[in-house]
Simulated scan of single mutants.
Amino acid sequence: MQLAPLQTIISCMNVLDKNGLRIGIDLGGSKIELIAMDRDGNELLRFRRATPAKDYMATVKTVAEMVGEADRELAAAASIGIGTPGAISLKTGLMKNCNSTCLNGQMLKEDIEAELRREVRMSNDANCFALSEAVDGAAAGAGVVFGVILGTGVGGGIVVNGHVLSGINSIAGEWGHNPLPSPFGSELTGHGCYCGRKGCIETWLSGPAMADDHLRSGGGLMRPDEIAAGVEQGDPLCRFTLERYCDRLARALAGVINILDPDVIVLGGGLSNIKMLYDQVPKLWGRYIFSDEVTTQLLPPKHGDSSGVRGAAWLWGHE
């Protein structure tokens, strides 16, 4: 696919300076969401389209069509940031680590730019979540922010002084595929992970992992939100499951604090709605952190499910 002419890309690089309009796109496995914001982060429009199933070129064209529709509604060109389910390999320029597997091995950034004939900026969806919460969310004004995704999978993103830290290997923040710290008892054997290893943090802290842990402990088949509701209703098995989860999350985040020492950790994903985490985890992580005092804050997201797409829009001016 032929790339857009250089003069077209250069002219589009100045779009943000002219009108401050930003388009953010969250490229998910089942849906593609677009948001347009002004320079102050006020939402101007938002809409979604279904992601073409396992069809790479149809996905690229759907993104281009959505941007075209937004351009017409805005009656002006805007900068474009895209949050992706994986990362661009610095070695090959191809997408990697995408759970939307049709994206892997593709020149996604270049192909979308060729369709749009303008520059786009792209980052991992967890990085976009962290950036959104760092710019104008729960961690606004904090110097170092670690954004956590606790959902179907476990991921993370790092923002330092308003800029995404991607790392030399484009894997900064990928804490979900480190081993669970300080395992004991049944944790020592670990569980297999799709990455090919055993005992990854993701296999203990994802939503499916919590449900599996509850089932293995005799609590029956329940979703995480049902387990949290069971705690409120006084179910002891639900409480034991959530207490185990809190301790594992405390150990995992203590490892992050020992290395990164962030000002704020913001939780995202479906499990971030469990209120008990914000009370219990900070009470537990001190025993695993190499400091006599821990002032890192653990906070829920301000923008909730919108953080990913908002963070994509903020990629312009915050890289």
Rank of each mutant, 00 (worst) to 15 (best):
residue 25 I to K: 08
residue 302 K to W: 09
residue 252 A to W: 07
residue 83 G to H: 01
residue 55 D to V: 01
residue 122 M to D: 12
residue 119 E to F: 06
residue 73 E to P: 00
residue 61 K to L: 11
residue 31 K to H: 13
residue 169 N to R: 15
residue 231 V to H: 03
residue 297 Q to W: 01
residue 5 P to N: 11
residue 228 A to D: 14
residue 142 A to R: 01
residue 258 N to F: 00
residue 173 G to T: 09
residue 65 E to N: 11
residue 40 D to L: 11
residue 247 D to T: 11
residue 35 I to D: 00
residue 91 K to I: 11
residue 251 R to E: 04
residue 208 P to L: 09
residue 252 A to E: 09
residue 47 F to E: 13
residue 92 T to S: 14
residue 237 L to F: 03
residue 135 V to W: 12
residue 306 S to C: 08
residue 187 E to H: 07
residue 222 M to C: 10
residue 63 V to F: 09
residue 28 G to D: 03
residue 296 T to I: 03
residue 178 N to S: 12
residue 265 I to Q: 12
residue 149 I to G: 01
residue 43 E to S: 05
residue 219 G to H: 09
residue 100 S to M: 10
residue 246 C to K: 05
residue 129 F to M: 14
residue 74 L to G: 09
residue 29 G to L: 01
residue 232 E to S: 15
residue 56 Y to H: 11
residue 80 I to F: 03
residue 242 L to H: 08
residue 134 A to H: 08
residue 166 S to A: 12
residue 211 A to H: 00
residue 232 E to G: 15
residue 226 E to Q: 15
residue 189 T to E: 06
residue 69 E to M: 11
residue 55 D to Y: 07
residue 142 A to D: 02
residue 56 Y to I: 13
residue 49 R to F: 12
residue 72 R to P: 00
residue 65 E to H: 08
residue 96 K to H: 02
residue 61 K to Y: 05
residue 56 Y to C: 11
residue 164 V to I: 15
residue 136 D to N: 14
residue 53 A to K: 13
residue 306 S to K: 11
residue 81 G to C: 06
residue 4 A to V: 14
residue 26 D to Y: 06
